[in-house]
Design a binder for these strands. Structure first.
Lengths: 207, 207, 207, 207
DNA sequence: GATGAATGAGGGTTCATTCAT
DNA sequence: AATGAATGAACCCTCATTCAT
């Protein structure tokens, strides 16, 4: 069997195992067995547990970023529409790859600086995607720190909703995205007055 | 040395170690050494690693809840004012106890159902505190799932900002709380138009 | 509370614990708790686990020997009658003190030479009691080794029956003694022909 | 080195160690060292101390039963001749494998129900071998409990003589078997009158 | 390209024992 | 006469990692 195929099998097994058990609790034995190969082969291809985990993080971070970017390809959309598209893609991807999401969101950030740094890169790309949107949309030029703070909040909210959607039955990606748009775009103040954000008109209309 | 004192020392050491290393990577040896006692004493008082971790989670969850509640004591405040107070207290507490916050937010939720369940109780109390506020403030009666989704988003945003504030120099609790209020209350839509939430008037005035 | 009383309490607790758990599995903690005292007191009175166990063995060995001797006091009995009396006393005592019997028969002989030697003394006294009987009763003078071998067999049979009687419901000391007398006195050869030993006449009559 | 060989080495080392030290006092370190391997290999092949001990009990119980059965193969022998053959084989085996005998007779029965149950199976086979002989040989049909009691006594006597023969220099298996046959077949009553059991004629002639 | 055999190192847990009061 | 506080040492078990084939 060609090396590339074998390697993908191993990484798949590793992502599943790391995602469910955690970095420390996952054993190389289990990963090798799940991949259907012997342990020395895992070491031959991926060198060590640490490198294997790092490789998993990178692959899944890239995949998630690609998915989000692919969701926002249409040019010329209004900022809120772009955000909506990105969020929908984000929620869809995390729902389809729960183990990968667990690796990125939970495991990578709880098992040492080395791994946290690896995933921080991806997070910053998300943040800068959001800050770009915000800067582009704002009438005035807000302070850097304000924008970053708000983007952090937005991404954090998205992460929490991804977990919530994965755990709560029947919450679709669109529903999660709508919830977040209502919250993030309209704001609680508006929500409490009965306002709602909706695809295609609401926020635009509001201006 | 009396048992109570020793026990507190051990729990402090455990929170620090668990918070920094993670549950699996923390060794009872290290905890005992940091507490300045021998390992058997830790077992004599706290029985097992699992029970020790559970005790840490409970203690810190209670402390965090107490801090947030203590921050919202003033009666008769408008809902947004209450939220602001709670958030400020929350950010202040997490900033003062970063290891405890790591235990609650990261470690407890990544190392097995048992621990996750322990912290889920606290999180639900926060959520219900928020949903209570929202229901109280709303003109209309929103659907349950909407409210819970929004509360999840809000708490997730708060958690992300707590991490951001801990990592970014010179971000005070008040600043983090203000950022979140701007984001959460005014909404991105309003923010982009130049609106800002501020202590004491903005949202009230808006009605 | 006077020392002697306390000491008896401890030894009682120790015999019960050692008898049920075994020497290694019994912990000084458990013994102290069962005795209702603190651990240091056990050490103050009995010095160490090893000495405590040795003291238990001695006490119970003496008690068992005394019980057997007390069962054979009547002088002038025929040898088989003496044996019958001794066996009845033996089975009665082991049935009344199962933990003590476990300590002597099982635990003391499975946990190191030191303890085995302690209980071997008692066993030799039983053996020599039996060999005395046999020599006294024999028409001819048998070889020493023959007598000792037979005595070993008899004592072994008695030990096995004591265990069997303790485990099998409703087997009384007298029944066990009768079974053994039938076996040991009449012999399988005779038993199979329908002979039986019975109190008072059988073996005597046979001569 | 192939797995089977290594496994036998480990079990041999385990039987020796368990037989001499006892279950609790034997350490996996010691067993591994005696087997000439590292500790993890013992765990890889035999899983746990408990399973290792159980495996030892089973192997040695089977070996002992096989040895006794192999000693009684000749068909058509008189019952006492069969008993004599079985006993000779039994004593020869226990003398050749004292550690195995210690494991079966002492250790397995003093360290928890699980192990005792494992060896009880073998003991019942011996008992039923003896009871079978007795029933076959009896003119009358004796009560069940009587037969079992007598068989217990006989097996107990054999066990005691095995210990005695192992400890006393120059006692051969045949001598031990002869001593037991004298005791068990002729009975003390007969012995004291000068009767002796001997291979080939005594009991048969007696009928 | 692939594996069966093997281990050094370390972690959780228990326990007999002592000291200061 | 009695105990609460404390520990050194050892044991069972697991795991990442390598070597010879």
């Amino acid at each position: 069997m060609p090396r590339e195929v074998r390697e993908r099998q191993m990484m798949d097994a590793a992502v599943a195992t790391f995602g469910q058990r955690g970095y420390r609790a996952a054993s190389m034995d289990e990963i090798a067995e799940l991949a259907g190969v012997s342990k020395p082969l895992v070491y031959l291809y991926l060198n060590s547990k640490e490198e294997l985990f790092t490789a998993c993080i990178r692959r899944e971070a890239d995949a998630l970023l690609a998915a989000v970017r692919a969701g926002v390809v249409e040019p010329g959309l209004a900022p809120d529409q772009q955000l909506w598209s990105g969020l929908t893609a984000f929620f869809a991807h995390t729902a389809e790859h729960p183990d990968a999401w667990s690796v990125l969101h939970r495991q990578a950030r709880t098992h040492g600086e080395r791994f946290a740094a690896e995933v921080a890169g991806m997070r910053e790309e998300l943040i800068s995607f959001v800050t770009g949107l915000l800067r582009e949309a704002a009438y005035t030029t807000p302070a850097d720190r304000d924008v970053v703070g708000v983007a952090q909040a937005l991404v954090g909210a998205a992460e929490a909703l991804a977990g919530w959607a994965n755990e709560t039955p029947d919450v679709t990606a669109k529903e999660a995205a709508a919830t977040l748009m209502n919250f993030a775009w309209t704001g609680l103040g508006g929500l409490l007055d009965g306002e709602r954000w909706s695809v295609g008109n609401a926020p635009v209309a509001r201006r």
